[in-house]
Design a protein around this nucleic acid. Structure first.
Length: 219
DNA sequence: AACTCGGGGCA
DNA sequence: TGCCCAGAGTT
């Protein structure tokens, strides 16, 4: 397991590699952000914007989503994938906002997570990005990178990964770190072929050491 | 813990 | 072409 100083070094490397890794979730209001994150499950937010241009012009409020038929909404989000569930959840979620939250998006993680189609990850993203609530959203990239480097344990659950990160990273950097780790995981520490040879963190990386040793042995 | 939804992106 | 993906709900 990496200590705080080693983790500090990792964060600095992330910053050097992806200095401009701001949030790609560039939305004007919490509701639009919430819908975008729900839609981008198993896809990317960039894909949502690319594949459904004009979606957020057509649908601006919870009322807009429940005013159309399920079939119409499904057609509008069809090209994102997993569209049947997502469309259904967004209508259900919109209904809940109208009935229980005066049409507004709730601020707390617990309230967010109780909405249809909103799991722990989505709840944390919305809470932290839209409301500056203290939260770290652990997605597959963050989880993989944390485990490979040794920031957390291999068998840690998502919840445990989240708690460890919150404990070992200064709160003021949670948001930036989250997005830099995603870039790092997506472009460098990839699931299939991580680029260990050209990694500045190789010397302290648990998984990297293992892989290099294995590679040397196989020669 | 495993399974399902699913079209787009990428090799 | 085939494989994978910034997840969540159900069994």
């Amino acid at each position: 397991m990496l200590n705080k100083q080693q983790i500090r070094y990792c964060l600095d490397v992330f910053e050097k590699m992806y200095p401009e890794a701001e949030c790609e979730l560039n939305h004007t209001n919490p509701f639009e952000l919430l819908v975008a994150v729900v839609l981008s499950a198993q896809a990317t937010d960039a894909l949502v914007n690319k594949v459904t241009p004009g979606l957020f012009e057509k649908y601006k409020t919870p009322e807009d989503y429940v005013s159309v038929s399920l079939e119409e909404l499904q057609q509008d989000v069809k090209r994102i994938g997993l569209y049947r569930n997502k469309a259904k959840n967004i209508q259900k979620l919109s209904q809940t906002l109208i009935e229980s939250y005066d049409g507004q998006v709730p601020r707390t993680k617990e309230q967010l997570e109780s909405l249809a189609g909103v799991g722990r990850k989505t709840a944390n993203v919305v809470a932290s990005v839209a409301f500056d609530e203290p939260a770290i959203a652990v997605d597959t990239h963050v989880e993989r990178v944390s485990k490979r480097l040794g920031i957390c344990r291999w068998k840690d659950s998502v919840l445990e990964v989240e708690k460890t990160l919150m404990r070992k990273i200064p709160e003021s950097e949670w948001s930036v770190t989250h997005h830099r780790m995603i870039f790092f995981g997506r472009y460098h520490c990839k699931a299939q072929r991580p680029n260990c040879e050209e990694c500045s963190l190789l010397t302290l990386c648990r998984e990297g050491q293992k892989r290099m040793k294995k590679k040397a042995h196989s020669k």
